[in-house]
């Protein structure tokens, strides 16, 4: 069995000393790095005043909630219909939010791409503007839009449009900047204008990438759309938050189940569409 006989390990170590010497420099770096991470972790726990005595109690209570959650039950058929309607709202919010955000972000992303608009100031201003939109969480946007158009799913749609506008603008402009210059130069050399260069040289390259990014976001927006109801912006989140507050655990688990099913089916559909559009390519 053991036909391959090792010589004495000591002789091997003697012959290749550099392979057996511990690398103190690298080990030191890694140890210090992890040590700092752990120290900050401990500091965080102390600073946040995490009450460990409540942990066991809480776990116990959580177990109780979980027991009360099975089996998932909407209560009545009428209630189930209300939930399904809320779910429809959620999907509508996610869909229109993604679509609106993408449509608005597209022209702006051209402005933010260095290879389309060479002006540094325009570039800088649009980039910073997009960053600001992105820095505000969807829930905060929802809170603001509820104040403008009132409670309901429309506020949710507008909130998603705003936060997606920022994310798409950044993603799109990065995709555009990564595009190959040569087709555009070819169009210019054949006598096309700058706009022709964008339309025939640039867009055919980037549109599939942009579409796949949009589809990818559709799924993550469905997740966001399930929660913006918490601040009153429509969708299933409103029902969910309400049922959690009144401790109707069976309904809560029913709603969570609905969300899980919806998100994974949208994930599946958008995945299929994505592969149909660009093939099995990694999205940046």
């Amino acid at each position: 069995m053991n036909s391959f006989n090792f010589e004495n390990q000591a002789t091997i170590a003697e012959r290749h000393p550099h392979l057996f010497r511990p690398d103190w420099w690298n080990r030191g770096k890694i140890t210090v790095g992890f040590g700092a991470a752990i120290a900050l972790f401990v500091y965080g726990i102390v600073q946040l005043d995490i009450p460990f005595h409540r942990l066991s109690d809480g776990m116990f209570r959580l177990g109780g909630f979980l027991q009360l959650m099975v089996p998932p039950d909407p209560g009545s058929w009428a209630q189930a219909l209300i939930y399904l309607h809320a779910l429809g709202e959620t999907v509508a919010i996610a869909f229109l939010g993604t679509l609106g955000g993408a449509l608005l972000a597209f022209p702006v992303s051209l402005l933010a791409a260095r290879n389309v608009v060479a002006n540094r100031i325009v570039h800088l201003l649009t980039r910073r503007g997009l960053d600001t939109m992105r820095g505000v969480d969807t829930l905060i946007w929802a809170l603001i839009w509820v104040g403008v158009v009132g409670l309901g799913p429309f506020a949710g749609i507008l909130a998603l449009i705003c936060s997606d506008f920022g994310s798409f603008g950044k993603l799109f402009s990065e995709a555009i900047e990564a595009a190959d210059k040569k087709p555009g130069e070819g169009v210019l050399a054949a006598g096309g204008s700058h706009l022709h260069g964008i339309r025939f040289g640039l867009l055919p390259q980037v549109i599939p990438i942009l579409l796949s990014q949009v589809l990818y976001y559709f799924e993550s927006n469905t997740r966001s759309a399930t929660i913006i109801g918490i601040v009153g912006a429509g969708g299933i989140g409103l029902q969910l938050a309400e049922q959690i507050r009144v401790l109707e655990w069976q309904r809560v688990s029913f709603l969570i189940l609905l969300i899980l099913i919806t998100v994974s089916s949208i994930d599946w559909i958008s995945g299929k569409l994505r592969f149909a559009i660009i093939g099995r390519r990694e999205i940046a």
Binding site: P51, L55, G58, S224, T226, I230, I259, S264
Partner: peptide, 23 residues
């Protein structure tokens, strides 16, 4: 898939207000 804020809503009931449910 379950949004973190939903976990937070449930944990606030189990562990009380404060940073613990958020973490």
């Amino acid at each position: 898939t379950v949004p973190e804020i939903v976990f937070a809503l449930i944990f606030v009931l189990a562990f009380g207000l404060g940073a613990l449910p958020g973490v």
